[in-house]
């Protein structure tokens, strides 16, 4: 193990940092959907990672059956949105009728069950399938530093998706109504906002964001059935560190953890890096359960 920081070249360090930021954007994109759904639905959606897998699976299947890749991926993303919406309208309905801690607990188990259900179906029907989008250029060099083109494109897609989400939430009336419902449900009802509909919309949006995360991940690496719970745990890590109800928090935390991940990965290797990330989560929950960057939707 080489922990002698001085011996690491500065250019290496910058490359690692930027790699971390690019990966962090992916993490942010993965987490915003989870955070939105928890904020309004009160459901810590443990099936979130499966939405990513579903987009990947649908896209890969459509592409291999001859669809135009762009259309196929779009269809895959849309499908995840619709799946999330369908879950909100069906199995999760009875959960909303419960109150407080009970709602969260039952929601936790129902979505865990859904995660297993989806993980089983996708890995059974499509064993060995993986979704990956190749970028024609291998590496790009900027100012003498070289980056993987796929990581750059993936990071850009994540960034654009996050910006679009922020614009929607910040500028449109519907987006403001969603934020209003996140901040105060009684206040929203009094304004004539249908909170149930906003929740369905948030599920749809969360599904779309997970779908976009599948695209970003498919460009940077690959998406394959069976890794849904792992993706969920990444989203959970980011969500908890950022404050499980804060969209901005999730974005900042994602980038931060991306950098930690890249640095630790560079110095320590994969498994212990994950241990460090997980330890950060435990520390944050114990030190400040509301998250480091809570506040602000």
């Amino acid at each position: 193990m080489n922990l002698d920081l001085a011996s690491i070249a500065l250019s290496d360090l910058i490359e690692v940092l930027i790699d971390g930021i690019l990966f962090g954007l992916q993490l942010s994109l993965l987490a915003v959907g989870l955070v939105l759904i928890f904020g309004l639905g009160g459901i810590l959606n443990l099936a979130h990672g499966e939405f990513v897998i579903v987009t990947g699976v649908i896209s890969a299947v459509l592409i291999s059956s001859g669809w135009n890749p762009a259309v196929a991926i779009l269809a895959g993303i849309l499908f995840s949105g619709i799946l999330a919406l369908a879950l909100d309208r069906s199995v999760l309905r009875p959960v909303y009728r419960l109150e407080g801690e009970m709602e969260v607990l039952v929601g936790l188990f129902v979505t865990l069950g859904l995660a297993f259900t989806l993980e089983g179906i996708t890995s059974y029907l499509f064993p060995g399938l993986y979704f990956s989008v190749r970028v024609p250029v291998e590496t790009v060099s900027i100012f003498g530093l070289s980056f993987r083109a796929s990581a750059l494109v993936s990071g850009m897609i994540s960034f654009l998706s996050l910006m679009l989400l922020l614009l929607f939430l910040g500028k449109t009336m519907t987006g403001k109504a969603i934020r209003a419902a996140l901040q105060n449900q009684t206040g929203s009802k009094v304004c004539g906002i249908d909170v149930d509909r906003m929740r369905s919309l948030v599920f749809f949006l969360g599904g779309l964001m997970a779908g976009l995360a599948a695209l970003a991940k498919g460009i940077a690496s690959s998406v394959e059935p069976g890794s849904g719970l792992e993706l969920t745990s990444y989203a959970l890590i980011v969500g908890v560190v950022g404050g499980v109800r804060s969209v901005y928090g999730a974005m900042v935390a994602g980038i931060l953890l991306g950098i930690v991940n890249a640095l630790a990965g560079y110095l320590l290797g994969t498994y212990l890096t994950l241990v460090i990330l997980l330890a950060i989560v435990v520390a944050v929950i114990l030190y400040k359960p509301s998250g480091l960057f809570a506040g602000g939707v």
Binding site: F109, G113, F116, T117, G120
Partner: peptide
């Protein structure tokens, strides 16, 4: 099997 477990849990 995972699917069975999941559906049972739900």
């Amino acid at each position: 099997t995972l699917t069975f477990l999941g559906i049972m849990l739900v």
